Amino acid sequence: MKKKILVTGADGFIGSHLTETLVRQGYDVRAFVYYNSFNSWGWLDQSSAEIKSSLDVFSGDIRDPYGVKEAMKGCTHVLNLAALIAIPYSYHSPATYVDTNVTGTLNVVQAAKELCVEKVVHTSTSEVYGTALYVPIDEEHPLQGQSPYSASKIGADQMALSFYRSFDTPVSIIRPFNTYGPRQSARAVIPTIISQLASGKTNIKLGAVSPTRDFNYVKDTVNGFISVMNATSSIGEVINIGSNYEVSIGETAQMIADIMGVDLTIETDEQRLRPEKSEVERLWAENKKAKELLGWEPQYGGKEGFRRGLEETIEWFTNPKNLSQYKADVYNI
């Protein structure tokens, strides 16, 4: 039987790229987008007419169990990307993260159990590891909730895995490290840097620049989702998707400035700093399990691959039509 794929969070950054790629690869895709009175499909509004005409769009709210189950009817596979992900906003409104991330995940796996869905791929995050206790970080690394966001994702991951262990619900956990690329929110550091520089600023505002990250280009993340979905060996497993390349925020800013041909000065903006014990100081992915179980490898790995990914991201953001959708002079939490 042909796969019918439900993508929750299809209107978001990674979700829209994933949805488009699935359609191009010939899958039958239902896109779950967040209901709003503008009938906006988020980033899918900017997809080609060919993509949009191929989509089965369902508007709803991941927090609504009835709507989630309705959206999942007739689907063989569910890729669950619907989540609140901004760390600063989780300090402001933590209860919304529990409702969306934990309860939303419960709604997905409960419906999957009742509908006998073939596979649920649930989206985790490298933030669940907190500051690395050892590197590179493998899937056995302890989980540390250093923000309400990361705590909610730990809860969501465990909820999903509990259904695998309790009811044999076929759940896989994909754990992407810091994904970047076209369409990403300016609350994330790479779009923050690019959008400020592209707007003519050379003295840009950032938070801490010493923490390191393992940045994963969105095309690699999308390929990771599809690989997890198609691999029977991924059921019941947690799998890192990361480049296995560590770089600091400061070095990243300098690389972006070099590509854009500008001289850069960084000003520390106090409101962009995380509380001291909440800052994740170091992330560096071990991706051996993904290679062994899925045959997945990053195409944008290492310093050279990171630079290529940044070049593609900068090309998109510096298009005036795309840049006009960002408020480079406003801090976006």
Rank of each mutant, 00 (worst) to 15 (best):
I259D: 03
V120H: 02
V171S: 00
I62L: 14
D28P: 01
N287T: 13
G224L: 05
I333M: 11
Y34T: 14
G250Y: 04
R187E: 15
G250Q: 09
L273D: 09
E246C: 12
S16I: 07
I235N: 02
K73Y: 06
A285M: 04
Y300H: 09
R272C: 12
G12V: 08
E286P: 00
E127I: 06
P136Q: 03
I190W: 00
S185P: 04
W43E: 15
Y91G: 00
L22C: 06
V238D: 01
G309F: 03
I62Y: 03
V102P: 00
E312H: 05
W43G: 00
F317A: 03
E276G: 02
V7C: 08
A253R: 00
Q254T: 11
L18S: 01
T169I: 14
I241D: 01
S93C: 12
L283F: 04
D263G: 10
A83I: 11
E292F: 08
R187L: 11
Y149C: 02
V247H: 03
F317N: 01
V29L: 11
V121P: 02
D99K: 13
R187D: 13
D138I: 08
K277Q: 13
F177P: 02
V29K: 03
P275C: 06
L264A: 12
G12D: 05
G42Q: 10
V68H: 04
I5H: 02
Q146R: 11
E118I: 05
L310R: 03
H122D: 13
C75D: 06
R308Y: 05
G200Y: 04
Y164S: 06
G242N: 04
K153G: 01
K153F: 07
T103K: 10
V117R: 01
N216T: 15
V209Q: 07
V222E: 01
P170R: 05
G181W: 01
D263Y: 07
R165T: 13
Y66L: 14
T221V: 14
V171I: 15
F167N: 10
R187F: 12
D269A: 14
N107W: 08
G9M: 03
I256F: 02
H141L: 10
S195V: 15
E246V: 10
A132K: 00
G305H: 05
N244R: 08
V135I: 13
M1G: 07
Y129A: 12
G309W: 00
S185M: 12
V238Y: 02
T105V: 13
L81D: 04
A31H: 08
R308I: 05
L273P: 02
N178C: 10
G309Q: 01
G236H: 01
T8W: 02
M159E: 08
Q271A: 13
S54T: 10
P298S: 10
S93G: 07
P176H: 09
K4V: 15
H92A: 12
A151R: 00
